[in-house]
Design a protein around this nucleic acid. Structure first.
Lengths: 232, 232
DNA sequence: CGATAACTTGACATCCTTCAAGGGTTGTGG
DNA sequence: CCACAACCCTTGAAGGATGTCAAGTTATCG
């Protein structure tokens, strides 16, 4: 593993405060690999042999049932995924595929579990990370159960806008068909939802979004920190 | 706190393997209280001052937005709730109310966080518990996004049946209006969904369910361990 | 018993999905 | 550089699923 990546992983919240020895032994069994786009990294139901870390690129977490498929989340650098399965030594609940050319670090799950017991700073970091993941999904669940698809889209746009710096115009960070899946609707329905937001001053050109009437959109979307804030 | 309850809490996975001293000091700041039915124990958005443990009775976790409300989960003895908020020292994402007369133990959140750092067995237990909660919600999210309401009901009945011992007839463990909310539909729609399952051999009398054709129902419901199993 | 609340049922509106077709973009090979 | 294929996005039409409103029925509890 290149030294720059080693240091970058070390800086992750998950690893930042653990003892040097423990980090070194974690990394000893780890390896980093390049993957092209659209490669399935893991499949739901398989045993969780490795904790994965997205070093560069991006990864889609998705699930399937009875011929249907839905996108659950997107993982971007630098963060981990399937931490819970690693901890519990249980099968993956989601599949993962690269969205673009990506660099992924893999750490054997048993090493993670072993070091967890030996390094309380690492343990604390894992708990914090897990609690964060848990709360993120609770928010997603609230979003899905309490809002219509139009409201979900409106709030997504406001979140994305904030994430992009807060300007009136910004880019969607992934293709619409997958945005539709993340928001729990069909691509056709998303197209119509964008039109449905025009009266609130939203205009769309390709992947470029422009919010022409911030107040109107917010009045409609009613964003709520207990659903839409990333940090808390 | 009565000695019997003290020992019962001690036996919880979360506390079973921690050092005596640490458990004692955790319990020193804790107190137990009786609540009547329909009491709102916590409100989303408030700071998380206490880790809650349901000793007896049952508690509904729910969320609201824009005048709507949805039931997220039910907590039954003996387990904890809002662990993630306690760990992160962040506001509650869900509200909680008693469904019946209930006995609740409250442990100051800061004590939990303090002991976490001092007791690695406790830390490990918290991680396991959190990972469990995380995976439960992932399953709920998959249930919601990948299935129609009829399929969700069918699979819920199969889960409930198994939970009740596996016999052809069993009782719903809470009222239908809240079951509807848990399953993400309206009470009216739930009524119709029950009728929609009649062709698959499901009959309903009040809260009593009878599955007259197990194979038919399972063929329709297509239960999946990665969505419907409690344990993994 | 009432009285209140839960549940059911019907009619209707709305939302959403599905299917089909067309327009636009991207990437590739001639 | 162009032609073509493949894919994504959009749009329309139709049908299905779900939510809403209103009324009636049943259950529950004081």
């Amino acid at each position: 593993m290149p030294d720059s990546e080693y240091r970058e992983i070390r800086k992750l919240d998950l690893f930042a405060h653990m003892a040097d020895d423990n980090f070194t032994s974690l990394m000893r069994g780890a390896y980093v690999q390049n993957f092209p786009a659209q490669i399935e990294l893991i499949t739901e139901g398989e045993p969780s042999d490795f904790l994965h870390i997205v070093v560069s690129g991006s990864v889609d977490l998705f699930s399937t049932w009875n011929g249907r498929e839905t996108s659950m989340a997107t993982v971007r650098p630098i963060s981990t995924f399937i931490l819970a399965a690693t901890i519990k030594d249980a099968p993956y609940l989601m599949s993962a595929r690269t969205l673009e050319k990506s660099r992924i670090a893999l750490i054997p799950s048993q090493d993670v579990r072993a070091i967890f017991g030996a390094d309380s700073n690492f343990a604390r970091a894992i708990v914090t990370e897990l609690a964060q993941c848990y709360r993120s999904i609770i928010k997603a669940q609230k979003d899905l159960k309490l809002r219509t698809s139009l409201e979900r889209l409106a709030n997504y746009l406001l979140r994305q806008q904030r994430h992009a710096g807060g300007g009136a115009a910004f880019e969607l960070d992934f293709e619409k068909r997958r945005l539709a899946s993340v928001l729990g609707m069909t691509p056709e329905n998303l197209s119509r939802a964008f039109k449905g937001l025009q009266p609130y001053g939203v205009s769309v050109t390709g992947t470029r979004i422009s919010i022409d009437n911030q107040a109107d959109l917010e009045r409609f979307a009613k964003p709520n920190p207990l659903i839409d804030d990333f940090s808390t």
